[in-house]
């Protein structure tokens, strides 16, 4: 009888997995390594310097694009989390006409190609004579990320014990109290993962931002896209490195908090 309860790595599998991870990380390492390179050409590593980080701070346009990215990500995440969580709660709690239609139409922005949705917004905004700016950009980001929040929170609510809410109400808690003390803590891991999804989608977006950002509201990725053919200055590597590391730190923290909340349940 052969029984393997403890799973072990096989050398072949390890090698294959390493290759794929290398493939996934190679371009990220390149950007990070060259942000510390003394040579202005992104070809070989000549020596270590942090000069580009200083230059980056002086490059006003570049910094502006970075702040735009952060502002858009921040507001679109907040708005999608609030509206999306409310919607998930409503779909869970109430029975009403068109409920099925509404829940299935949530999949439309998930399913249609971003490009189509982006040009639809472009046509819409220009037809009603709205110039592209930070607000249009935030609106666009909320539209594609909110459905993901609704779906994530709903999935969390599906495993939710209604009797606890009833118990709270029986013990004299009013609606608001029940919501903030019972419902919200219970669904918070779902709200956090929804928020993380919204945040990553906003930070990762290129296609939708390309069409819905005005000249003053360019995000960092758009700025880089505009520079690539002409050649990118090394301060872009520096800022990209900061953005990569910043995103990773924020999301790791969120994952840790989420894990803690999950354990408390």
């Amino acid at each position: 009888m052969k029984k393997r309860k403890v799973r072990e790595f096989k050398p072949g599998s390890v090698f294959y997995a390493c290759l794929v991870y290398l493939f996934l990380y190679l371009p990220i390492f390149v950007v990070i390594v060259f942000s510390f390179n003394t040579s202005e050409m992104n070809i070989t590593f000549q020596g270590f310097t942090v000069e580009w980080y200083g230059r980056m701070l002086e490059n006003r346009q570049l910094m502006q694009s970075f702040f735009n990215t952060v502002i858009v990500a921040f507001w679109s995440t907040i708005i999608s989390v609030v509206i999306g969580t409310l919607c998930a709660l409503g779909l869970y709690k109430f029975e009403f006409k068109l409920k099925n239609l509404i829940s299935s139409s949530l999949y439309i922005p998930i399913v249609i190609p971003e490009l189509v949705f982006a040009i639809a917004l472009l046509i819409f905004f220009s037809s009603i004579h709205v110039n592209m700016n930070m607000v249009t950009l935030i609106i666009a980001h909320v539209t594609f990320s909110m459905p993901f929040v609704v779906i994530t929170v709903r999935a969390r609510l599906a495993g939710f014990d209604k009797s606890i809410e009833e118990a709270a109400r029986d013990l004299g808690a009013n609606e608001l109290h029940t919501f903030f003390r019972v419902t919200l803590p219970m669904i918070s891991p779902g709200v956090i993962s929804g928020g993380m999804l919204a945040l990553t989608m906003s930070l990762d977006d290129v296609v939708v931002s390309f069409f819905t950002a005005g000249p003053e509201s360019q995000t960092l990725p758009l700025k880089i896209l505009g520079m690539v053919r002409k050649g990118v200055s090394p301060d872009v590597n520096a800022l990209s490195t900061l953005m990569i590391l910043g995103t990773i730190v924020i999301l790791l923290t969120a994952t840790l908090i989420q894990g803690k909340l999950e354990k408390k349940m």
Partner: peptide, 30 residues
């Protein structure tokens, strides 16, 4: 987690990394 990390960083920045790697005067050719 290691699989998610690249997913979290902007796809354009990562594509730009490939651009640097593959150029005629790029890292791989060199």
């Amino acid at each position: 987690m290691l699989l998610m990390l690249p997913f979290w960083t902007n796809s354009l920045i990562r594509t730009y990394g490939w651009n640097t790697l593959l150029r005629t005067e790029g890292v791989i050719n060199h």
